[in-house]
Amino acid sequence: MATWYSKASLIAAAIFLVISLLSSATFANGGRSGRRLVRSYDEPCKKMTLYFHDILYDYSNSTTNSTSAAAAKPTALATAVSPNGTFFGEVVVFDDPMTEGTRALPPPSLRETAAARAQGVYLYDSKEVYDAWFAFSVVFNSTGRRGTLNLMGADLMSEKTRDISVVGGTGDFFMSRGVATLRTDAVEGLVYFRLQMDIKLYECYI
Score class of each variant (00 low, 15 high):
13 A>G: 14
14 A>W: 00
178 G>W: 11
27 F>W: 10
152 M>I: 07
124 Y>Q: 04
162 R>D: 06
20 S>K: 02
118 A>S: 15
122 Y>D: 04
148 T>S: 12
74 P>C: 14
52 F>P: 00
113 T>P: 01
202 Y>V: 05
117 R>T: 14
178 G>V: 12
96 D>A: 14
51 Y>K: 07
88 F>K: 01
72 A>Y: 07
160 K>Q: 13
89 G>P: 05
21 L>R: 04
114 A>D: 08
169 G>H: 12
137 S>L: 10
133 W>C: 02
163 D>L: 02
131 D>L: 00
21 L>S: 07
118 A>D: 12
82 S>E: 07
79 T>C: 02
186 A>V: 03
23 S>I: 08
13 A>K: 09
205 Y>D: 04
22 L>S: 02
139 V>E: 11
98 M>L: 15
54 D>V: 11
64 T>H: 10
103 R>Q: 13
48 M>Q: 02
151 L>Q: 04
191 V>P: 00
63 T>F: 02
12 A>H: 00
144 G>Y: 13
112 E>K: 13
197 M>Q: 15
5 Y>D: 11
61 N>G: 12
166 V>P: 03
180 A>R: 07
18 V>R: 06
124 Y>K: 09
186 A>R: 10
107 P>F: 01
206 I>A: 14
149 L>S: 03
22 L>C: 08
101 G>R: 09
142 S>Q: 13
1 M>T: 03
181 T>Y: 09
122 Y>I: 10
95 D>V: 07
20 S>L: 04
70 A>T: 11
131 D>W: 06
186 A>H: 14
20 S>P: 01
154 A>S: 10
196 Q>H: 04
44 P>Q: 05
172 D>M: 14
190 L>M: 10
181 T>A: 03
185 D>M: 13
191 V>K: 05
